[in-house]
Design a protein around this nucleic acid. Structure first.
Lengths: 218, 218
DNA sequence: ATAAAAATTTAGGCAAAACTAAAAATATAT
DNA sequence: ATATATTTTTAGTTTTGCCTAAATTTTTAT
């Protein structure tokens, strides 16, 4: 599989997690930063290789083969991210672009040895699950902080948006994976939240709360 | 720089280490496994970018800029090889192809952090020197075992050929980097050597001896 | 010195992956 | 329901890196 084919597969995979029907040409184009016409070309190629099912104008869906291939790319991406953060001391907002390249290195032996070296992690530095060598994913109970009720407490376990600017905002506010967060109040006008983190109160917008995953603890 | 451009640069670099004049089109074609006409095309592109100096029919030479770029690729290749062997437990005959891919990952930060993680190694698993971040290479005193005199003793410090088959032969004979080797006799008919390694005597052909680097110790 | 051999370059093409512009299909809105 | 808007596909190009075949230059051998 080429570098480009892998990127398309990955894009289709990520999009299909939220769209239960076929993934649209335009959505893919947005994700891989190309034009719809280029996507149509590539989709045909992927369909020939039986990685996706494609019907003109109806969007695409991954086949079992395509799904597994996509998961293996995601596995590589996330394992490399763990390596960069845990072993090379990268910050969590710096790893995405490098992992984007590393994920295309073709060696099963490499990735399985890396997995072992890292101690078979199940989540990447942003709290996203790492598929195992068979494509199995451990689902963790979690919900968006914006869905918490006032009075509830959670442990931050992931981010929905892993853009550098969002992650740096969290660093600045000293919110990290593992932080205990209590919902003190919710403003009904804009859905902003007053939360308590490390004994300090702060206000976060609904947009922030909608991009933070937490696990309820009480 | 593209993947392909990097491979050509690296090939020219390796060839220019043994050829003090311009590197020939055919030699490059052999190294990158392409045809002479393809090499001519690529050379023109590299010349436009001022990475090589090129005169029709006269071969190519690296410019300072090209030399530094080539050394950085070699640096990456060899650091990744160290990583694979030291950290991921690959055998020294398994690392080349994977490193061949890893060397193209574009991130200075990555490679410098990897360098630090590995403890700033100066040699790769085959005894080849690793250029530092400025392109400086530590030269180690060494010579081919085939050039040793009878009675001399050396420590094996590198291999000239790092093909899997040669490395596996050495493994089988229990010759590794660091092995102490004494020349017991040299057969004048075929230049084969009787050597002593770890108290055991064995005979190695001239071809083997011509691909093993050692440092004289007495 | 010159003919033959080898190496190199040029010319013309191909495949992958992208693009623009135009055509076709589908979705939306009044 | 039908006109309009949006989405998707098709058709035709471009660029990169490779190829083959032919032409040219350099090297080698007599």
């Amino acid at each position: 599989m080429t570098y480009s084919e892998e990127n398309y597969l990955k894009a289709i995979y990520h999009l299909s997690l939220t769209q239960k029907q076929g993934v649209s040409t335009n959505a893919i184009a947005g994700m891989v930063e190309s034009k719809a016409s280029s996507v149509t070309d590539m989709i045909k190629k992927l369909a020939e290789k039986e990685l996706v099912i494609y019907q003109k104008y109806q969007g695409v869906m991954l086949t079992d083969k395509g799904l597994l291939a996509a998961k293996m790319i995601v596995r590589k991406h996330r394992l490399w991210e763990v390596f960069l953060v845990e072993k090379l001391d990268f910050a969590w907002d710096e790893v995405h672009d490098v992992a984007e390249e590393l994920e295309h290195i073709k060696s099963e032996k490499l990735i399985n040895k890396l997995d072992a070296f890292l101690g078979f992690p199940t989540e990447d530095p942003h709290g996203d699950p790492i598929p195992d060598r068979n494509g199995n994913i451990v689902k963790v109970e979690k919900q968006l902080l914006s869905e918490f009720e006032v009075g509830q407490t959670g442990i931050c376990v992931g981010v929905k948006d892993s853009s550098s600017s969002f992650l740096q905002y969290l660093d600045k506010q000293q919110i990290a994976l593992g932080s205990k967060i209590k919902i003190i109040a919710k403003e009904s006008f804009d859905m902003s939240l007053t939360i308590e983190v490390e004994k300090k109160h702060m206000i976060i917008s609904n947009k922030i709360a909608s991009n933070l995953f937490a696990k309820i603890v009480s």
